[in-house]
Simulated scan of single mutants.
Amino acid sequence: MKLVRENNPIRVQARIKELAIDYGVIMFYLVLLLLANLVFYFLVLDGIPEFTIVQSQLIATFESVVPIVLIFSLLDYKKPFGTYGKRRAGLKVQYKTPSFFRSLVRNSIKFLPWQLAHIGVIDGIYSEFATSSSIIFTNAGILLALILLVMGFFRKDKRHLGDLIAGTQVVLIRRES
C-alpha cells in the first residue's frame, strides 16, 4: 500500500452515500432472507418453531452477520476494492499488503456492533431486558458503532478501528483522464 494518507480528502457526503447504499444492499439481503425463512418455515416445518436463546443467537449470527461480513470482505478485497456503496461513492479500500484476511479483519470489526446488538437484543427478548448482559451487549454495540462512525467521518485519515488493525484505508478512486 502506498503510505497512509494522513489528510484523506473524503467528503462526509461521500461516506454517507456509501453507507446508505451499503445499508440498502444489506436490507435487501435481509428481506430475501426473511422471505426464504418464511417459505421454509411454513412449507417445510408447517409454522415458525420456538427457538431457544442459543438457537436464536446462532441463527442471527450465521444467517445474517457472517454472510454479510464474508460478502463485504470479498467485495473489498477483489478489484475494484470496494462494496457497491464505495464504488458508487467513488471510494475504494487500499491495503498495506492486500490479503483477504485483512479485508476479513476490517469487516469483522466494522460489523461487530451489529453482532453485539444482536446478542443483547436476543438476550433481552428472552429475559425481558432484565439481565445485565442484554443491556451491556446492546449498549456496547451502540457505543462501538458510534466510535467507528466518528472515526470514519472525523479523523483526518478517515480510518476507523478496523482500518487501523487491518492496515487498510478507504480512499478516493483516482479518475484517469
Rank of each mutant, 00 (worst) to 15 (best):
F101C: 01
I142Q: 02
G162H: 06
L161K: 00
L146F: 14
W114P: 00
I119D: 07
V69A: 08
S64R: 06
A117N: 07
S108L: 12
D76V: 00
L75K: 05
L104N: 01
L148G: 06
Q169R: 05
G90I: 01
F154W: 14
P49Y: 11
R102A: 13
F51T: 11
L30F: 14
S73D: 00
L104H: 07
Y95P: 00
Q57I: 15
N37G: 11
V150D: 11
S73I: 06
T61C: 12
K86A: 03
M27L: 15
E6K: 09
G85Q: 09
P113A: 08
L104K: 00
S132H: 10
E18C: 15
G167S: 07
I16L: 15
L164F: 08
S64M: 13
N139K: 02
L146M: 13
V105A: 02
F62A: 05
A36C: 03
R159Q: 14
L112K: 00
S103A: 12
M1V: 08
P80S: 04
P113Y: 08
I53H: 03
G47Y: 13
I147P: 08
E63M: 14
Q169D: 06
T83V: 01
V66S: 02
R11C: 02
N7M: 07
F101Q: 08
L112T: 05
I48P: 03
V25H: 05
A36G: 04
L30C: 14
R175T: 12
A20C: 09
F40T: 01
V54F: 14
T138I: 06
F40Q: 00
D46A: 09
Y77D: 03
D76T: 06
F28G: 12
V150H: 12
G124H: 09
D76K: 02
V65G: 01
A20N: 08
K17E: 09
R11K: 12
D157G: 01
L91N: 02
G167F: 11
I16W: 15
L58I: 12
L58N: 04
